[in-house]
Design a protein around this nucleic acid. Structure first.
Lengths: 101, 101
DNA sequence: TCTGTATATTCCTTGACAGGAATATACGCG
DNA sequence: CGCGTATATTCCTGTCAAGGAATATACAGA
């Protein structure tokens, strides 16, 4: 798993943007208005999200509509899910540490 | 969703630590040796992970065994999973943008 | 209590990054 | 082409966090 996606989501404003775009695709100004952020910062954040592969752009006239990209979120879900297979084993290992120590 | 968990996982070394601890709980030195990091940095990273609620500590003599905490990963999986319900709707909304402009 | 091992903490320096302000670019329209 | 709208980019500055080095703390055993 690459840390890039986590880095992109680590910034509170960016996380809010993602949760906004989850509902529906939006233009830069729409995001700025809804989150009460300045347009340049929103552009920068969306750029970061795009570089991380979390969003894509669809130009419409002068507007640029940003929408989420499914794939990274699927990867994220799979990654988080893969941890479930280890919890039992973890407890066993801890007991080993406690006994063998 | 809180950005704290993403922030904790955004640092490459910390992400590696998490993926190590996924296999089994480990002491600070074990992590340091396996990842070829210095002990103080590992302690710091583990402290950050603990503050984010991703790991817990189990002291054994002088050693401190760190292990993952399931709950945050379950939350993360649920969050990522919740995005799946929106993709179809997203495409519809984009089309609306394209038509209505 | 002294020693060695395991871990945590502090101080310092440096790089990355976010926000603000200003400006540049893209595009449609008259 | 000139103008207005929408968005991107640049420059600057302050903050924060990571790594290195040194040191402090915790604990077990002789």
């Amino acid at each position: 798993m690459d840390a890039t996606i986590f880095n992109a989501l680590a910034e509170p404003s960016r996380l809010k943007i993602v949760e906004l775009l989850r509902v529906q695709p939006r233009s830069v100004n729409e995001v700025a208005l809804l989150l009460k952020l300045r347009q340049p910062q929103v552009s920068k954040h969306l750029h970061t999200l795009a570089e991380a592969g979390l969003v894509t752009v669809q130009p419409i006239a002068q507007q640029r509509i940003y929408m989420l990209q499914p794939e990274p979120f699927v990867r994220l879900e799979d990654w988080a899910n893969s941890f479930q297979h280890y919890w039992d084993q973890q407890l066993d290992s801890l007991e080993n540490h406690l006994k063998k120590g």
